[in-house]
């Protein structure tokens, strides 16, 4: 593994984070929701670029996958944050990385995830329009299959 990648893995280790899944140039690991702010600050100080955040609705949990790109080596570091399905909530990182502001607004708009600490979570893509469904990217579960 390259020096630079080792350096970043050490940053992760200092936060007690173990890499759980590694593939050619892609490193995935799990992070507690409370720790994501500190971690993203450290990663952006280490000159990693936040590519985007993917929101994924799983069967029993809600998942946010942050993609930090290291442009010197072409590696991707992807912290995974789990939240509850009914009321997903993850602290905002938009104060440390300005680029995250729009990304969080979009996720709030399309998935209904709450980002405490975000200054202005107004809808990014849709307006108040009854023709567009609320949180359109959430999976619609039928009532009778709820249990």
């Amino acid at each position: 593994m390259m020096e630079r990648v080792k350096e970043i893995v050490e940053i992760l280790a200092s936060e007690n984070i173990a890499v759980d899944h590694e593939k050619k140039r892609r490193i995935y690991f799990k992070v507690e929701p409370g720790a994501i702010r500190e971690l993203s600050r450290k990663l952006s100080n280490a000159r990693l670029r936040l590519s985007t955040i993917s929101a994924i609705e799983n069967l029993r949990s809600f998942e946010l996958l942050y993609h930090f790109s290291d442009d010197q080596t072409g590696y991707y570091f992807c912290p995974r944050v789990y939240s509850s399905l009914e009321n997903p909530e993850v602290p905002s990182i938009s104060d440390t990385i300005s680029g995250a502001s729009w990304i969080e607004r979009e996720i709030h708009d399309l998935f209904g995830v709450n980002f405490p600490g975000h200054p202005d979570l107004k809808p990014l893509l849709k307006e108040d329009n009854e023709d567009i469904p609320e949180q359109p990217l959430r999976v619609k579960r039928r009532e009778d299959h709820a249990d």
Binding site: S51, T52, A55, I56, H67, G99, S101, I103
Partner: peptide, 26 residues
Amino acid sequence: FHYIRSDGSNRPVRHKIRAPSYVNIP
């Protein structure tokens, strides 16, 4: 940037797309 998750079926479970203008416009 494209992120795709597959569960082994013939459709992606999640397909996240981030176009360059999305981060350039702000």
